[in-house]
């Protein structure tokens, strides 16, 4: 059985815990509960006829009280960099976190997730803002 560790990182209150909860348990709550440390969940996915066990590390958000410890990302196959579309500052946090990962762990595969698509009217992030990410990814 293939097992992959995947980490969720980003600023506080971008929706990392909600994404994991929705994916693993199909539950979504409107209430925001800040995460301290890390919550670990497991989920299985089928891809190309193989079952892969995902170990999902929902790591606390980067904020004025807590900096994300890079030790949490050791052994990860990749990570989701989550951004709240309604808070421009969360994109800047994502830029910084990505640099930190590259510096400490290396070039792990990652997906930039722009969350809160149900609040599109309130978005502070435009397509131009994420162009640097596309350039960096060679797209």
């Amino acid at each position: 059985m293939i097992q992959k560790k995947v980490c969720m990182i980003g600023a506080f209150a971008v929706g990392k815990t909600s994404l994991v909860s929705q994916f693993v348990r199909g539950i979504y709550s409107e209430k925001y509960l800040t995460t301290i440390g890390v919550k670990i969940d497991k989920a299985s996915i089928e891809a190309d006829g193989h079952t892969t066990n995902l170990v999902l590390w929902d790591i606390h958000g980067e904020d004025e009280f807590q900096n994300v410890r890079m030790s949490y990302l050791r052994g990860a196959a990749g990570y989701l960099l989550v951004v709240d579309g309604t808070r421009r500052a969360s994109l800047e946090v994502a830029f910084n976190l990505r640099s930190k990962v590259v510096e400490n762990i290396g070039h792990l595969p990652f997906v930039l997730v722009l969350n809160k698509s149900d609040l599109l009217a309130d978005w502070e992030i435009t397509r131009e803002d994420i162009d640097p990410w596309n350039s960096a990814a060679g797209r």
Partner: peptide, 21 residues
């Protein structure tokens, strides 16, 4: 302790994983 998968061998003198739920 399944969350230690991938953590060993250590590459530094010590490593901390705080507040694992």
């Amino acid at each position: 302790l399944f969350y230690l998968a991938g953590m060993l061998p250590l590459t530094t003198a010590h490593e901390v994983l705080p507040s694992v739920h």
